[in-house]
């Protein structure tokens, strides 16, 4: 399968990339690691006139700490995220979930920013970023702006990024002492999640003081299981976690596809939330 023809440009700075995107308008598409875009091009599901390859912009790569915040460049690969000791220490949930993305060769090319900007609700990282209350930083012709994860994912494959904006970094508040677990249900090893649950739990004196639950593939965007988060607050025993997890699918509208019906996805959300929270809280 051969992609449709397109013009190609490879800017070497964020400023140049943003100018190129502004000139290209709606027909320009950013190429990050290409692990989602290239399959779309080959299947002729995308027809950009201009592909802007941001793979050679050094300022978009790398991981650093900044006063309690982990700052990850948009073009940092999954492979680098998984291996980075700072990510493991401050955002273990992200490292654990990223290690389950696709397979090693795809993780060598795929990037954190690319998978977030692609905004596939079946992708693992959008729900994780939502659970981590991260902030996404975009640069456009008008300058930089910060977008909270809750406002970033707008609809299926749609984000708050404007056509002339480039996602440049992701800022994650450090949660060193929170328990975490990403529980994914998939048909085969490298398949998309049928449903996934990202759980973050802060324990205090044997009870769950706070919980954050991100849901993968339970709607057209990643979602927070807010009812379950509330019900988990104060939970001290496995029974309370079980009851709270029963609310995990409340308010969701999961899709139907050959892998699962909406009812089955709702069932999975409840079961996987129970497992993920028990593992995150060390109660499993």
């Amino acid at each position: 399968m051969i992609p449709p023809a397109f013009e190609y440009t490879r800017p070497t700075s964020v400023d140049e990339a943003v100018r190129t995107l502004a000139d290209g308008g709606e027909d320009a598409k950013v190429l990050a690691g290409g692990q989602s875009l290239l399959p779309l091009l080959r299947l002729r599901l995308a027809f950009p006139e201009l592909v802007v390859d941001v793979g050679r912009i050094p300022e978009l790569r790398g991981i650093r700490e900044d006063e309690g915040t982990l700052v990850i460049g948009a073009m940092t690969t999954h492979h680098d995220v998984v291996r980075d000791p700072r990510v493991r220490r401050h955002a273990g949930l992200l490292a654990a979930a990223t290690a389950t993305v696709a397979d090693p060769a795809v993780r060598h090319r795929g990037t954190l920013g690319g998978s977030l900007a692609h905004a596939d609700p079946a992708g693992d990282l959008p729900a994780v970023i939502l659970a981590l209350d991260a902030t996404l930083v975009a640069v456009g012709p008008g300058g930089r702006r910060s977008i909270p994860a809750r406002e970033f994912f707008v609809d299926y494959l749609q984000t708050a990024l404007r056509p002339d904006e480039l996602l440049v970094q992701v800022e994650i508040p450090a949660r060193d002492d929170w328990g975490f677990h990403y529980e994914k249900f998939q048909r085969v090893a490298q398949a998309w999640a049928v449903v996934g649950v990202a759980a973050l739990v802060r324990r205090d004196d044997g009870r769950i003081a706070e919980a954050r639950i991100g849901l993968t593939n339970m709607g057209s965007t990643p979602l927070r299981a807010e009812a379950a988060e509330e019900a988990l607050t104060g939970a001290t025993a496995v029974g309370a976690v079980r009851r709270a997890a029963e609310t995990a699918a409340d308010g969701t509208r999961p899709s139907s596809d050959p892998s699962a019906s909406p009812e089955y996805r709702a069932h999975l959300a409840r079961v996987l939330t129970r497992r993920a929270v028990l593992a995150a809280a060390g109660m499993g």
């Binding site: 190429l31 290239l38 390859d53 793979g55 060598h108």
Partner: peptide, 13 residues
């Protein structure tokens, strides 16, 4: 120095 799936990389990359 890293494996890639060469059906998912452009020659220009």
């Amino acid at each position: 120095g890293e494996t890639v799936k060469s059906c998912s990389v452009l020659a220009v990359q």
